[in-house]
Nucleic acid binder design. Structure first.
Lengths: 225, 225
DNA sequence: TTCCGGCGTAAGGCTTTCGTAAGGAACTGG
DNA sequence: CCAGTTCCTTACGAAAGCCTTACGCCGGAA
């Protein structure tokens, strides 16, 4: 069914989880520390990640953030009993669900099913992003700026959506190429520059002094609502 | 991003590999035989080596062993199809990864990313650093001082982040140069002084009597929250 | 087929940032 | 208090990174 990466340093727990998820027809991979999780993720991104918070080498929160830098893959976090759970919610790591130990493997399997169902239904570009001056609708691929509809091309929309859905985060041109372009065509990074230029032309009041799609010198671009 | 030495005698293959790695933002150098590889390595050690096993003059295995005598630089070996691959594993040349021909350049690029990530010292810019008056966010490369956002240049941000993430610790100018600058360019230590000055201008209330980035006479600089 | 919008590339101009040098200020030890 | 360091401050040329524009190519629509 789906490929699931389980990151859990306790072998007993990992094994139980693995068995339950396999029973649901998933292809399960295991990682026993944070670094291994990142490696496996880089090598072959799974459809979902079950991530323990307490991990050797690189802790779960860091792993979660690192993955979120480049991917929207659903993540379910495992937290120790009690307070940690609440603290996490405050941290806003970008996980899709939390479940605290000790948990029943059956419940975890149910959560996995739920999250997969949710994210499967929510096809790519499902969300609607609302900012003060700009609204981006992934459903209809339409954009409104200051109440007026603007027509973007495919690339322009993808670019805007990707930046806006990670508002505030800086993306290098190389990152944008990797995320938005088909990997088997090689395009120059300057292509990104040009598309940013065209996008600005359409959504900025003064394209040469952009308010939303900002240049971060030596680093890339960042969206600001 | 990183400097990568590609050792491959087949020009077509070398060119494709070069293009794919460049697209990931790497600085790619080429060597077409084993001797050239060793020369280039001696001249300027790269961050990673992609090494073909079959090479004119000096074969890949010899090159690999020679380099391993003096360096731990990550090496990814390219091997001909089939048996050679397994035989190599037995030989234990000290390579970090193997990929057999014919390979997809995309997969190679992915392996390079994985190996680089694995060997990366730490995870740069993952954390968000919070102090009483200053917050530094590595994710968005943004800095807030007393609730107001300040715009730093790349170097300024790197400098602040490095100092702030080791709050209290003293760093000599030489240390900062070694950590924050590209190793193969030699810049004067006074450069650090100037950047500290410019940083103070932006984050200190009274730059001539700094509260956060303090001078430790005869030793270097230290950050204090 | 012809036309046209969208895309990627290349080149030149422009802005920002960087590194250096030089003179002045501040600290240290004697 | 003096000489010797070490650090601060400033200004400027060079380099790097980004913007802008124009052009050719491609695929789909007419």
């Amino acid at each position: 069914m789906s490929t699931i990466l389980v990151v859990e340093d306790e072998p007993m727990v990992a094994e139980v989880v693995e068995r339950y998820l396999r029973r649901d027809g998933h292809d399960v991979r295991l990682a026993f520390d944070g670094q291994a999780a990142l490696d496996q993720f880089a090598e072959q991104p799974p459809d979902l990640i079950v991530l323990d918070l307490m991990l050797p080498r690189v802790d779960g929160a860091t792993v979660c953030r690192a993955i979120r830098e480049s991917s929207d893959v659903p993540i379910i976090m495992l937290t120790a009993r009690g307070g940690e759970h609440d603290r996490l919610k405050g941290l806003d790591l970008g996980a899709d669900d939390y479940i605290s130990k000790p948990f029943s493997p059956r419940e975890l399997a149910a959560r996995v099913r739920a999250v997969l169902r949710r994210t499967a239904k929510a096809m790519p570009y499902a969300r609607r992003l609302e900012f003060e001056r700009i609204q981006v609708d992934g459903q209809t691929r339409s954009v409104e700026v200051a109440g007026r509809r603007v027509a973007l091309t495919g690339r322009e929309f993808d670019l805007l959506y990707h930046l806006a859905s990670h508002s505030g985060q800086v993306f290098a041109r190389e990152q944008l190429l990797a995320s938005l372009w088909n990997e088997d065509v090689d395009v120059d990074t300057s292509t990104v520059t040009v598309h940013v230029r065209r996008l600005r032309e359409k959504i900025e009041l003064d394209p040469s002094r952009p308010r939303h799609v900002k240049t971060v010198w030596g680093a890339g671009y960042r969206f600001e609502g």
